[in-house]
Amino acid sequence: MNNDCGCDKARAELEEYLRNEFCRTNAEDIRSHLETCEGCQSELHVGIVLTQTVQRACKEVAPEELRDQLLLTLRTLESR
Protein backbone atom coordinates (compact mmCIF):
# COMPACT_ATOMS: atom_id res chain seq x y z
CA MET A 1 0.00 0.00 0.00
CA ASN A 2 1.36 3.42 -0.96
CA ASN A 3 1.03 6.06 1.76
CA ASP A 4 2.68 8.81 -0.30
CA CYS A 5 0.81 12.10 -0.04
CA GLY A 6 2.35 13.37 -3.27
CA CYS A 7 5.83 14.23 -1.96
CA ASP A 8 7.61 11.53 -3.95
CA LYS A 9 6.08 12.75 -7.21
CA ALA A 10 6.60 16.43 -6.41
CA ARG A 11 10.25 15.96 -5.45
CA ALA A 12 11.00 13.70 -8.41
CA GLU A 13 9.58 16.27 -10.82
CA LEU A 14 10.73 19.45 -9.09
CA GLU A 15 13.45 20.30 -11.63
CA GLU A 16 11.05 20.02 -14.55
CA TYR A 17 8.54 22.12 -12.62
CA LEU A 18 11.14 24.83 -12.00
CA ARG A 19 11.99 24.92 -15.72
CA ASN A 20 8.30 25.04 -16.72
CA GLU A 21 8.65 21.81 -18.69
CA PHE A 22 5.27 20.37 -17.68
CA CYS A 23 1.89 20.51 -19.26
CA ARG A 24 -0.55 22.70 -17.36
CA THR A 25 -2.28 19.76 -15.61
CA ASN A 26 0.94 18.28 -14.19
CA ALA A 27 2.18 21.72 -13.13
CA GLU A 28 -1.11 22.43 -11.34
CA ASP A 29 -0.91 19.08 -9.51
CA ILE A 30 2.57 19.86 -8.24
CA ARG A 31 1.67 23.48 -7.44
CA SER A 32 -1.33 22.30 -5.39
CA HIS A 33 0.86 19.90 -3.46
CA LEU A 34 3.52 22.55 -2.84
CA GLU A 35 0.92 24.93 -1.42
CA THR A 36 0.11 22.51 1.40
CA CYS A 37 3.39 20.70 2.09
CA GLU A 38 6.06 22.54 4.07
CA GLY A 39 8.71 19.88 3.39
CA CYS A 40 8.28 20.18 -0.35
CA GLN A 41 8.14 23.98 -0.07
CA SER A 42 11.63 23.80 1.45
CA GLU A 43 12.80 21.61 -1.44
CA LEU A 44 11.29 24.12 -3.86
CA HIS A 45 13.10 27.00 -2.17
CA VAL A 46 16.43 25.16 -2.40
CA GLY A 47 15.73 24.38 -6.04
CA ILE A 48 14.92 28.01 -6.82
CA VAL A 49 18.07 29.31 -5.11
CA LEU A 50 20.24 26.70 -6.84
CA THR A 51 18.69 27.42 -10.24
CA GLN A 52 19.21 31.19 -9.84
CA THR A 53 22.82 30.68 -8.72
CA VAL A 54 23.61 28.49 -11.73
CA GLN A 55 21.91 30.95 -14.09
CA ARG A 56 23.99 33.83 -12.69
CA ALA A 57 27.20 31.80 -12.99
CA CYS A 58 26.44 30.99 -16.62
CA LYS A 59 26.13 34.69 -17.45
CA GLU A 60 29.61 35.54 -16.23
CA VAL A 61 32.19 36.42 -18.86
CA ALA A 62 35.91 35.78 -18.66
CA PRO A 63 38.06 38.90 -18.22
CA GLU A 64 39.32 40.31 -21.52
CA GLU A 65 42.96 39.66 -20.58
CA LEU A 66 42.28 35.98 -19.88
CA ARG A 67 40.39 35.60 -23.15
CA ASP A 68 43.28 37.19 -25.06
CA GLN A 69 45.80 34.85 -23.40
CA LEU A 70 43.72 31.79 -24.22
CA LEU A 71 43.27 32.83 -27.84
CA LEU A 72 47.01 33.46 -28.19
CA THR A 73 47.78 30.05 -26.69
CA LEU A 74 45.30 28.33 -29.00
CA ARG A 75 46.68 30.07 -32.08
CA THR A 76 50.23 29.15 -31.06
CA LEU A 77 49.24 25.50 -30.63
CA GLU A 78 47.40 25.46 -33.97
CA SER A 79 50.37 26.82 -35.85
CA ARG A 80 52.70 24.02 -34.70
Rank of each mutant, 00 (worst) to 15 (best):
V49F: 12
A27E: 10
L77D: 09
V54Q: 12
C23Y: 04
Q41M: 01
C58N: 07
C23A: 08
T73V: 05
V61N: 10
R31W: 07
A10E: 00
D4P: 09
V54L: 11
M1S: 14
E64F: 14
A12W: 02
L18I: 11
E16L: 01
K9G: 00
E15P: 13
E13P: 00
M1K: 04
N20D: 03
A57R: 05
N2H: 05
V46R: 00
R19I: 06
N3Q: 07
Q55G: 04
L77I: 11
L70Y: 04
E21L: 13
N26G: 02
G39M: 06
K59G: 15
L74M: 09
N3Y: 13
S79F: 05
I30Q: 05
C7L: 01
G6C: 03
H33F: 03
V54W: 09
L18E: 07
S79A: 13
E43K: 01
F22E: 05
C5D: 06
R24Q: 03
T76V: 11
C40V: 04
Q69C: 10
C58H: 08
C58R: 12
R31T: 14
E15Q: 11
Q52K: 13
E43S: 14
L74G: 15
K9L: 12
E65Y: 07
E78N: 13
C7G: 01
N3M: 09
D8Y: 13
K9S: 07
E60D: 09
F22P: 08
Q69H: 08
R75E: 12
L74C: 09
R24D: 08
C7P: 03
L71V: 14
I48C: 09
D68S: 15
F22D: 02
E28D: 06
C37I: 05
E21V: 05
R31F: 03
L50G: 11
L44F: 06
S79N: 10
M1Y: 11
T25H: 02
A10L: 00
L71G: 09
R80K: 07
L18G: 06
T73P: 01
R56W: 02
D4V: 00
A62K: 07
Y17E: 06
Q52M: 13
R67P: 00
L72G: 15
R56V: 14
V61Y: 06
Q41G: 08
E64R: 02
R67N: 11
R11C: 06
V46W: 06
T76C: 12
E21D: 13
E38D: 13
R31E: 11
N20L: 09
A12F: 10
N3F: 15
T53C: 10
G47M: 02
T51E: 14
E15W: 07
L50W: 08
L72T: 15
L34P: 10
F22K: 02
T53V: 13
D68I: 12
C40H: 00
I48Y: 09
A27T: 01
T53S: 15
Y17R: 01
T53D: 14
L34G: 04
